[in-house]
């Protein structure tokens, strides 16, 4: 059984159809990348999974149980944490408070939460010295790290990451993806939306390519890159023979 399964899921924003009959699956322990151009429906897919958007058709199953249309507050209690595009750090709360709130999906004592937050500083050492700083004062890379730490505090079985590289310098992007690889090593499954196909496929086990809300193709990173047509049309990597 797959950890997460989407079966013919369709979703719309008002009159605009954003997803048309998308089916995909994520197995336990995998990193799966969702790729495609802006507007292809990648973020919409994540929003449908985490409950921010109610699918108009189709089934979403998590650990075999249907979750489509479930409220986000319940979805996260099942063990799906969604780190949305743009990090969405609470600007008026401190770094530590942001991290602590990540555990709002489960019961734990204040002391226990404090210990877990301290553990986060081991994965994200930069955040330790910033723990008293307000969210909005952080740089983009720091905010991304904080958003990841906050997502991990939910102790998710599945982590949904939307564009973690957005607006970050290459060096920082590498750091972020190193952390993502490490998160998987610790047993968390990751479904990753990325525009930067190269970096996404460098950590992913499999990738799905979307176009206007439909699945175009899927495969291992090698397969996707070896398919010249796919690469040219969807992965933004036009250059085939770099001089």
């Amino acid at each position: 059984m797959k950890l997460l399964e989407l079966d013919a899921v369709a979703a719309a924003y008002g009159a605009v159809q954003a997803l048309q009959s998308l089916s995909l699956g994520v197995a336990k322990g995998e990193i799966v990348a969702l790729l495609g151009a802006n507007g292809a429906g990648k973020s919409t897919t994540l929003r449908a999974i985490s409950g921010l958007l109610r699918p108009t058709r189709g089934e979403i199953r998590f650990e075999g149980a249907p979750i489509a249309g479930m409220h986000p507050e319940r979805v996260v209690r099942l063990g799906i944490a969604h780190v949305p595009e743009g990090r969405r750090v609470f600007p008026g709360l401190t770094v530590r408070e942001n991290i602590l709130l990540g555990a709002s999906n489960r019961r734990a004592s204040r002391a226990q939460l404090g210990r877990e937050a301290d553990e986060m500083y081991e994965i994200f050492p930069d955040l330790l010295r910033l723990q008293g700083a307000l969210g909005w004062t952080l740089s983009g890379g720091q905010q991304q790290m904080l958003a990841l730490a906050r997502g991990l505090m939910a102790q998710p079985k599945l982590l949904l990451l939307d564009e973690p590289s957005l607006g970050l310098a290459p060096l920082i992007v590498q750091q972020v993806f190193r952390v993502i690889a490490r998160i998987r090593e610790q047993g968390t499954t990751v479904l990753l939306v990325e525009q930067n196909a190269r970096i996404a496929l460098s950590v992913a086990d499999r990738g799905y390519v979307l176009e206007t809300g439909r699945l175009v193709t899927e495969g291992s990173p090698g397969e996707l890159w070896d398919n010249e047509e796919v690469r040219a049309a969807y992965l933004g990597g036009k250059v085939t023979k770099a001089a």
Binding site: S50, L52, H71, P72, E73, V76, R77, A81, H82, P84, R88, F90, P91, G92, L93, E97, L100, L101, G102, S104, N105, R106, R110, L113, R150, A154
Partner: peptide, 24 residues
């Protein structure tokens, strides 16, 4: 208090708060 922090979080970003499991 954590409850107070949750209420602040809701006032700053409701969608994100609900994604974290805060009962908005």
């Amino acid at each position: 208090t954590l409850l107070g922090k949750r209420m602040q979080a809701v006032s700053q970003d409701k969608e994100m708060a609900s994604l974290l499991g805060i009962k908005v």
